[in-house]
């Protein structure tokens, strides 16, 4: 596939995602997950105050150590604490909600006449979605972690940066291979392993455009993530609470990008009016 064709496919995916917004309810799972993230952030940020102090003080101490109970080190450790809660949350609740969204998107295409097999019930597919979520999140975090470790072994700064960049691209590639798994749980009623296998096969045929979509997601998060990677600078140069505002902005960015990612990938497969299975 030529670069121009990849770009046109990419634009078509974004356009489909925009068109899908007309059915407002497809956004609901993403909004619910964003609300849950905000609630977690609120509980972590307001842990010393009622009503959170009753149960969040030990949680915060467990997540961030004794320093996390003090101002302003609490805000220094907030991104790390949030990350520790976020990963299991997105792997389970997050993927269950994204799966629900993909089911709704699939229904929409069925009404438009695409050949979408009968959906298995959402409740029955939940375990498969969660397993896919756990594998997806584990792989997406393990790959850059592995490269970061490798980068640590290299003594050259420039080379370390290159290795880290390779880690980020590797993570994008791994996610590209698994991003269609939820769709196959919906359309083929697959179990988690089969869904991941089919996803990898499907991604291979449209790898460039899928990777481009995932790269868009990564780039959208980049400004906020790079600021949050140095919370000490944010705390000392600006104000500690800015860390919380950045994390909240990150939630908003994630709401938009996760919707675009799943809507675009779903539409790329289902709107081709061909049998992708």
């Amino acid at each position: 596939m030529s670069a121009a064709k990849v770009f046109l496919e990419y634009l078509r995916g974004l356009d489909e995602a925009k068109r899908m917004l007309r059915a407002g309810n497809v956004v609901l799972p993403f909004v619910l997950f964003a609300s849950l993230q905000c609630l977690v952030l609120l509980a972590l940020a307001s842990f010393p105050f009622r009503p959170f102090s009753a149960f969040m003080v030990p949680v915060v101490e467990w997540l961030g150590g004794p320093n996390a109970l003090h101002y302003p080190s609490h805000y220094l450790l907030l991104p790390e604490m949030y990350h520790r809660l976020y990963l299991p949350l997105v792997a389970t609740v997050g993927f269950a909600l994204f799966g629900w969204a993909v089911f709704m998107m699939g229904d929409r295409f069925a009404r438009e006449g695409a050949r979408v097999p009968t959906a298995p019930s959402l409740a029955r597919s939940l375990p498969a979605m969660v397993v896919v979520g756990v594998v997806y999140v584990a792989a997406a975090t393990a790959v850059p972690a592995l490269f970061t470790w490798l980068g640590g072994l290299v003594k050259n700064d420039g080379l370390t940066r290159l290795v880290n960049l390779a880690g980020a691209l590797g993570s994008v590639a791994v996610q590209a291979l698994m991003v269609y798994a939820l769709l196959f749980i919906r359309t083929a009623g697959s179990g988690p392993v089969d869904a991941l296998r089919r996803s990898a096969a499907c991604a291979r045929s449209r790898f460039a455009v899928t990777a481009l979509l995932l790269l868009t997601v990564v780039l959208a998060h980049l400004p906020i993530d790079s600021l949050l990677a140095q919370p000490d600078k944010v705390v000392l140069k600006f104000k500690p609470e800015l860390v919380l505002y950045l994390l909240a902005a990150g939630v908003l960015v994630e709401l938009i990008t996760s919707y675009i990612l799943f809507a675009a990938t779903t539409s790329l497969v289902l709107s081709r009016r061909e049998d992708p299975f």
């Binding site: 010393p48 105050f49 102090s53 009753a54 003080v57 109970l69 003090h70």
Partner: peptide
Amino acid sequence: CGQRDDVSVRY
């Protein structure tokens, strides 16, 4: 667990 007003005031 009970409320932790000591932590609230100190924080």
